[in-house]
Amino acid sequence: KEQQNAFYEILHLPNLTEEQRNGFIQSLKDDPSVSKEILAEAKKLNDAQA
């Protein structure tokens, strides 16, 4: 469930490039146990690119 939530949120971050988004999603698939950390990174990058 946590992985699904992170997946959904990353898909809807407006400021990520397609490449960045795909990278985060691939990381989620590779290691779902760190989905919280991956989501935090994605949000940080999204904010930095706002």
Results as ranks from 00 to 15, higher is better:
1 K>T: 15
1 K>G: 15
1 K>S: 15
1 K>F: 11
2 E>W: 03
2 E>F: 02
2 E>K: 04
2 E>M: 03
3 Q>E: 14
3 Q>V: 05
3 Q>D: 15
3 Q>C: 03
4 Q>Y: 05
4 Q>T: 09
4 Q>P: 05
4 Q>G: 09
5 N>T: 12
5 N>S: 13
5 N>R: 15
5 N>F: 09
6 A>I: 04
7 F>A: 07
7 F>S: 06
9 E>F: 15
9 E>H: 15
10 I>S: 01
10 I>T: 02
10 I>Y: 01
10 I>P: 01
10 I>E: 01
12 H>T: 10
12 H>N: 09
13 L>E: 00
13 L>H: 04
13 L>P: 00
13 L>A: 02
13 L>F: 07
13 L>K: 01
14 P>V: 09
15 N>H: 13
17 T>A: 03
17 T>F: 05
17 T>I: 02
18 E>Q: 11
19 E>N: 08
20 Q>S: 02
20 Q>E: 04
20 Q>G: 01
20 Q>C: 01
21 R>T: 04
22 N>P: 00
22 N>F: 13
22 N>T: 14
23 G>R: 13
23 G>Q: 06
23 G>N: 12
23 G>E: 04
24 F>P: 00
24 F>W: 02
24 F>R: 00
24 F>S: 01
24 F>N: 00
25 I>T: 07
26 Q>S: 09
27 S>H: 11
28 L>F: 07
29 K>Q: 10
29 K>N: 08
30 D>S: 13
30 D>Y: 11
31 D>V: 06
32 P>A: 10
32 P>H: 07
32 P>S: 04
33 S>F: 11
33 S>A: 07
34 V>A: 14
34 V>M: 10
34 V>N: 08
34 V>T: 12
34 V>C: 06
35 S>Y: 15
36 K>E: 09
36 K>G: 10
37 E>I: 12
37 E>S: 10
38 I>H: 02
38 I>C: 03
38 I>N: 01
38 I>W: 03
38 I>G: 01
39 L>N: 02
40 A>K: 10
40 A>H: 10
40 A>G: 07
40 A>W: 15
40 A>S: 11
41 E>Y: 15
41 E>V: 12
42 A>P: 00
43 K>H: 12
44 K>A: 06
44 K>L: 09
44 K>W: 11
46 N>T: 01
46 N>P: 00
46 N>C: 02
47 D>T: 11
47 D>W: 15
48 A>R: 11
48 A>H: 14
48 A>T: 07
49 Q>G: 06
49 Q>N: 08
50 A>V: 09
50 A>Q: 13
50 A>P: 07
50 A>I: 11
50 A>K: 06
